[in-house]
Amino acid sequence: MTTLVHRDGQPVTIAELAPLAFAGYAHFTAMQVRGGRIRGLDLHLERLRSASAELFGRTLPDDRVRSFLRTALEAGPADVSLTATVYVASGQFTADETAEPEILIRTGPPASGPAGPLALAAVEYERFLPAVKHVGEVAKTYLMRRAVRDGFDDAAFVDRRGRISEATIWNLAFWDGDAVVWPDAAMLAGTMMGIVRRQLDRLGVPQRVQEIAPADVPAMAGAAVMNSWTPGVAVHRIGSAPVPEAPRFLDLLHQAHQAEPLTEP
C-alpha cells in the first residue's frame, strides 16, 4: 500500500517533509562547515555517541558517521550549516530496542547568528534529559515566542533551585572582569561551549563554574550566549537586570573559537 502525504491539500515534497520527519524521538547535532571542514568534530561525534547510547542503547561507529558527513558535504558548497539527526525507523511510542540507529544529514546556507546585544527574559524551566540534544522540544520555541511578545529577544532558563542554566538554543557565559564564569546547573553542554572552554584553557584565560541566580546578574561585568552559529553574542539584559558591555570578553570568546583547528570529516 502506498502512503500519501499531503500538506495544505497538496502532495508533500521531500524538501517539505524532511524538517518534520523526525520531530519525535531522535537526537541531533548542528554545526557550521567552512571550506568543507568542521571545528570541534570530536565533540560532535561524542555528542552523537552518548545521545544514541542514552536513547537507543546502541551507537553508530564514528567512521560511518564521518563517511556520511563527507558524502553530504561533497554534494554541496564548501560553506554550509549542517544538521545530523540520529533516529530509529521504529520511531516514537514504541519500545523496540532492536532497531539500529540511522542518520539523516541536512545542509543549508551558512549562518553566523544575530548581531546582538540581546535581552533575555528569565523564565522558570528545566529541560527533560538536559544533557541530550533531542528533538521535539516545543517548550523552547514557545518560551522564545512568549519572550519576544513581552519585548525580549529570547529567554534564559532558571531551574527550580533558582539557578540560571542555559537559554533556549544557547549556552550562557558570564564575565566577572577577569574570568569567564559558566553557570552551574543541569544543561546541554554545547559543542561551541566545549570548543571555547578548551581553547580558553590553552590561551591561559581564567574560568570557573559557579551557581548564578538572577539576583547575581547585576554584579557581573558581562554576559554572552553561544551556540553552533557563533562563539559569542552580547547579552545586555536578563530579566530586569542590565548587563554591562564587555568587548574584551566577547573578543576572548571569538579568539578562542578561531584558535580551534578546522578538521575534515
Results as ranks from 00 to 15, higher is better:
Asp42Asn: 04
Val243Ser: 03
Glu16Trp: 01
Gly136Lys: 11
Lys133Pro: 02
Gly222Arg: 10
Gly239Ser: 04
Arg64Trp: 14
Val196Thr: 05
Ile238Cys: 05
Leu48Phe: 03
His44Gly: 05
Val225Tyr: 07
Pro109Asn: 08
Met1Asn: 00
Thr191His: 07
Asp63Gln: 02
Phe174Trp: 13
Asn227Thr: 02
Gln207Tyr: 01
Leu69Ile: 11
Ala78Met: 05
Ala26Leu: 06
Phe128Lys: 13
Leu188Ser: 10
Gln32Trp: 05
Ile14Ser: 15
Ala213Met: 02
His44Glu: 05
Ser90Cys: 12
Thr71Val: 07
Arg237Pro: 01
Ile169Arg: 00
Asp154Gln: 00
Val243Thr: 09
Thr191Trp: 05
Glu102Leu: 08
Gln199Arg: 15
Phe56Glu: 06
Ala26Arg: 11
Leu69Cys: 02
Met193Thr: 11
Leu45His: 01
Val138Asn: 02
Ala53Asn: 08
Ala256Met: 06
Met193Arg: 14
Val88Tyr: 10
Asp42Glu: 12
Gly177Ile: 15
Asp96Glu: 09
Asp79Leu: 14
Asp154Thr: 00
Phe68Arg: 14
Gly162Tyr: 07
Val138His: 07
Leu172Gln: 03
Ala219Phe: 04
Phe28Thr: 10
Ile195Ser: 01
Arg64Gln: 13
Val80Gln: 11
Leu143Met: 05
Ser67Cys: 06
Tyr25Ala: 06
Ala246Asn: 09
Gln258Val: 10
Ser81Met: 03
Ala72Thr: 06
Glu46Thr: 13
Asp96Asn: 11
Arg146Met: 13
Ala213Arg: 14
Val80Gly: 09
Ala53Cys: 03
Trp175Pro: 11
Asp176Ser: 11
Ile105His: 08
Ala156Cys: 15
Phe22Met: 10
Arg34Asn: 09
Pro109Leu: 12
Ala131Leu: 04
Glu260Trp: 05
Ile105Glu: 02
Phe152Lys: 04
Ala115Thr: 00
Met31Thr: 08
Val5Ala: 03
Ala139Trp: 07
Val138Thr: 12
Asp42Cys: 04
Ala139Asp: 00
Val225His: 07
Arg145Gln: 15
Thr263Ile: 15
Gly232Ala: 06
Ala122Tyr: 09
Met144Ile: 11
Thr263Gly: 08
Ala119Cys: 12
Gly151Ser: 04
Ala26Gln: 10
Pro130Glu: 05
Leu118Arg: 05
Glu126Leu: 14
Gln10Leu: 12
Pro261Glu: 09
Thr98Gly: 02
Ala111Ile: 10
Pro183Ile: 06
Leu203Trp: 09
Arg47Asp: 00
Ala53Gly: 05
Glu97Ser: 12
Phe22Asn: 14
Ala23Cys: 14
Leu17His: 15
Asp178Asn: 14
Leu250Lys: 01
Arg149Thr: 15
Met220Val: 03
Phe128Asn: 07
Met226Phe: 13
Asp216Phe: 06
Leu48Ala: 00
Asp184Val: 06
Leu262Lys: 08
Val158Arg: 13
Gly76Ala: 14
Arg149Glu: 15
Ser90Thr: 12
Ser67Gly: 15
